[in-house]
């Protein structure tokens, strides 16, 4: 299990990027980390993978402090958003490098995937396209067979077909090796497909974390029209993220959907409809509720 305890990190002594951030990531799940630009997702991944040293707090992996701990790092692999490969290296060279670093590295897996994805293992990686470079990085990461894998902007630049292929591979990997995978992406549709849990970083903290199903069932969209005259106060008992009234029809985004359904059904309504939300909609409404919106800009 990954335990993140009161992590704080600031750059240039200015505002904290992360402040007293704590969360626990259980084993054998795919954890999606979301947040706005500059919210600290990549910084958190870099702290967990021991690239950055936190100003305060610590990260424990299997109850051991991860910072500069070679033994724990042997069980971790990180694919950053901005990829780098040694100049002149081919996929074969890169795989050899990973093999020399990770005990359980599976070379045959690399050959197999390279073959399936039509990647020339003897071709210089620098001559590959952006998407192909990312494929190389993900292939090598998956071939390490480590317990913890971290992907930053996982599928950036990869076409939808190969993206789906990698999603399946990641799910298989998790099932096969009991791997814990943490990934960030701005494409919430992607995370929705494969993540078990989701954490939202906002204002230097984890604003909420939950498993995807609970999250989706907990928040719902309601369209309702009441017989009597009413205003927003009529719904004051509900935890409302968004309220819009067009004529007599009100659109609500409410949290705690069970309680909301019970309450709204009890009202004397002309019609009422409960609609499920996509993860992306949940994220947008959550962020709007937190004051992060740009609708007035355009």
């Amino acid at each position: 299990m990954i335990e993140i305890k009161n992590i704080s990190k600031s750059f240039n002594g200015k505002k904290d990027v992360l402040m007293n951030l704590s969360c626990n990531i259980p084993d054998n799940i795919i954890y999606g980390l979301v947040g706005t630009n500059g919210s600290g997702k990549s910084t958190l991944l870099r702290i967990i993978t021991s690239i950055y040293k936190p100003d305060n707090g610590k990260v424990l992996v299997d109850n051991v402090n991860v910072y500069d701990n070679e033994k724990i790092k042997k069980e971790m692999v990180f694919v950053p958003d901005d990829l780098y490969f040694y100049s002149g290296y081919t996929l074969k060279d890169l795989a050899s490098f990973y093999k020399s670093m990770y005990n359980n590295f599976d070379m045959s897996f690399v050959y197999e995937l390279a073959n399936n994805l039509k990647l020339d293992i003897n071709k210089n990686i620098s001559s590959f396209s952006k998407g192909m470079k990312r494929q190389c990085a993900i292939i090598c990461a998956l071939a390490t067979n480590v317990k913890y894998m971290f992907f930053d902007e996982t599928f950036d630049g990869i076409d939808p077909i190969i993206r789906n292929y990698f999603k399946k591979l990641i799910i298989n990997q998790m099932a096969k090796q009991d791997t814990t995978i943490i990934m960030t992406s701005h494409n919430l549709r992607e995370l929705e497909d494969i993540c078990d849990n989701l954490g939202l970083i906002h204002d230097s903290k984890i604003f909420f974390e939950s498993d995807i199903n609970s999250l989706k069932s907990d928040i719902c969209k309601v369209q309702i029209s009441l017989k009597n005259e009413f205003d927003k106060d009529a719904f004051s008992k509900l935890n409302i993220l968004s309220y819009k009234k067009v004529g007599k029809v009100i659109t609500l985004i409410v949290k705690d959907s069970k309680k909301a359904k019970k309450y709204l059904n009890s009202l004397d309504s002309i019609f009422i409809e409960f609609l499920p939300l996509t993860l992306e909609e949940i994220f947008i409404y959550q962020m709007e509720a937190l004051g992060y919106e740009f609708k007035n800009v355009i």
Binding site: S50, I51, D68, K73, M76, D82, M101
Partner: peptide
């Protein structure tokens, strides 16, 4: 001196000392 190279090198299972 380069961020992406730091990510590549330091994330590998090898301590700073080594």
């Amino acid at each position: 001196l380069k961020k992406n190279v730091i990510d590549f090198v330091i994330s590998k299972p090898i301590s700073r000392k080594k």
